[in-house]
Amino acid sequence: MAITGLIFVGFILAHMYGNLMIFAGEEAFDEYAEHLRELLTPMLPYGGALWILRIVLLASLVGHAYAAFALWSRAGKARKSRYAVSGVAKSLFVSKAMRWGGVALLLFLVFHILHFTTNTIQINGDFDSPAARLVSSFEVWWAVGIYTLAVLALGMHLLHGVWGAGMTLGLNTSIAAAERLRIAAVLIAVVTVVGFLLPPFAILFGIIP
């Protein structure tokens, strides 16, 4: 779980960096998207690296979701009768948020891939240039809304997830280490949320034409 989660974190950070290229102009962004597909050619065919990345991501997602559901069902089996009074524990919220938040992220991903990668869902017109697709989509307020919600959900998931991954990997073995881990989790979550939300809002408010 920690491994797959951290692969996601790596991807997310890279992806965020990519998205921020939009500030460098549409051409730069398109060049970047193109570059992704040309990565490591001619060792790999055109788009090869990207496909490898996709396969790794997909495998991770399957592994991650499988582990999450396995833990979820184990927890259910480990406590079959519920407490009459519950909900005082703050972690109960976190555990629910992780699970349902993860599911929400999964749904978002499907939508997101249909939107940007396969171009099946088209918002505000049909464009060949990824940059143009991006800019035109985020001129629509509800598209920005959906992405904002998704990114916030991601932030929450990461806030606990990164901390948890550190715990699971055995990085927290003292009070000081706990503090470092906590800071890392907050930092990654905040950077992710801000980084992902900058482009859509910049577009919505017309900072990027």
Binding site: A70, L71, R74, A75, K77, A78, R79, A89, K90, S91, L92, V94, S95, M98, H160, W163, G164, G166, M167, T168, G170, L171, N172, T173, S174, I175, A177, A178
Partner: peptide, 23 residues
């Protein structure tokens, strides 16, 4: 059950066993 690092255990522990023992 499995641990998903929720930390409730340590908050309830009367002896204040810290979470880092799990790690």
């Amino acid at each position: 059950g499995g641990c998903t690092n929720l930390g409730e255990c340590s908050r309830a522990c009367p002896k204040g066993i810290p979470l880092n023992v799990i790690s």
